[in-house]
Write a protein that binds this DNA or RNA. Structure first.
Lengths: 222, 222
DNA sequence: TCTGGTCAGAAAATCGATATTATTTACCCA
DNA sequence: TGGGTAAATAATATCGATTTTCTGACCAGA
């Protein structure tokens, strides 16, 4: 019998997480062909788990499956970015309102803890910080009793992260006081001030979005 | 060179469509274990395409993957039904508003044609009618330039169909004049009367939802 | 030179078999 | 007799090999 809780995950799961990470941080470029053989060598496993992982990533909209020509990472575009941003604003507002309506002490505790952990993490450790940042934002929504909505928000969040990495991580938190924005959102949520929390959250996203868009156009002009 | 458009689909595609259909119409019951071996025999193919099709269905929320214990069809519940209905109302309203804002002649033509085809189809041919019914509703939204939103609506539509089949198809269109509801929605859309179209569409869904919920509770009491 | 078709090489899709892992059943000991 | 352990069984996850399909280069004819 297996007593240790640290079950080693299946090959499929490992492949899924590894490839997903590579796409999000940009190690695999947008539109890049994903050859099974190459991934097999990198991840050191058979073709089946790779295929299965790629199939899972198709549903996350991070990978596209081409009829009988294999897989490639999905493309990025300004219009796609705008679409993601707009959908996120709508869906997260919906989720946040429901979450605050159902908020209890346990939820509040989780929120405060995740906020604290995020603030404590040095920004230098980019991937770790992104993880905690995501955890904080998802905890805001977690009180909402709609698993499907949460799944959508999660997906959209990941798609958005990808654009942040593409824009260059360093520039991300320079111009504004992101720490204060997060604290304000959390305080409004803890106060159960739903309208304010929604407004702050959406401003947070829209500001970041405008910032990234500006950066894209600079990049495109170079 | 392949001149005929009727490319025979890949095994994975065939498996995906076949299993999806079986789940939607209820041939595979909610929560039922999906054994690879059994599906292999039914569909007459190897295990790999089956696994891949099941993985695709996981993203459609029609199948659940259990850590290392295979697959099963996802469960149904009143709360899940309510969640789907609520999300559909929100997302389809969003999509419909954007669709009408972008509406052009080609879109209008497609809408009218799909409505006509649906009305012409005898209700006896249940699966064919459902197909046309879905096509009509998706055409309403198709003018919206947000592929991700459309994908979500599509998914939610399928999840809802499943509940319709579970409730028993025959009862579905008995009490109300569904034909008129559809015509009214289409006319409002063609008139670019956005608010009216949204109200009619959402009433349409909520009425059907209330009807199905009533039916579930009757069934549960028996 | 350009068009169209054919052929070789590469890649993907699929299959059948093997190794792992969960679940059930039978058994032993308290 | 009941709880827990261990073997047996069933099913999954994974691999390596085969079949099918696509892609790009090459050559012939116009």
């Amino acid at each position: 019998m297996q007593m240790d809780a640290s079950q080693e995950p299946s090959s499929t799961q490992r492949a899924y997480l590894a490839i997903r990470r590579m796409i999000l941080v940009g190690e695999l470029a947008p539109g890049e062909k994903l050859k099974i053989e190459k991934l097999r060598q990198i991840l050191d496993m058979g073709g089946s788990p790779i295929r299965e992982a790629l199939t899972l990533l198709v549903s996350d909209l991070l990978v596209e499956r081409l009829d009988q020509r294999g897989f490639r990472t999905s493309d990025v575009s300004p219009s796609n970015f705008a679409e993601i941003l707009n959908l996120r604003c709508h869906l997260e507002e919906m989720a946040l309102r429901e979450s605050l309506a159902n908020a209890d002490h346990a939820w509040e505790d989780r929120l405060v803890i995740s906020h604290h952990r995020m603030m404590r993490e040095p920004r230098a450790n980019v991937e770790r910080f992104e993880e905690l940042h995501k955890a904080f934002h998802m905890n805001l929504l977690n009180g909402c009793h709609s698993p499907v909505l949460l799944k959508f928000c999660n997906q959209l969040y990941d798609l958005n992260i990808r654009y942040r990495y593409l824009a260059g991580q360093a520039l991300n938190y320079s111009a504004r006081d992101i720490g204060k924005e997060h604290s304000d959102i959390m305080n409004a949520a803890v106060d159960r001030n739903t309208d304010l929390a929604c407004r702050l959250l959406l401003d947070h996203y829209r500001n970041t979005g405008a910032f990234l868009e500006k950066h894209f156009s600079v990049e495109a002009a170079e």
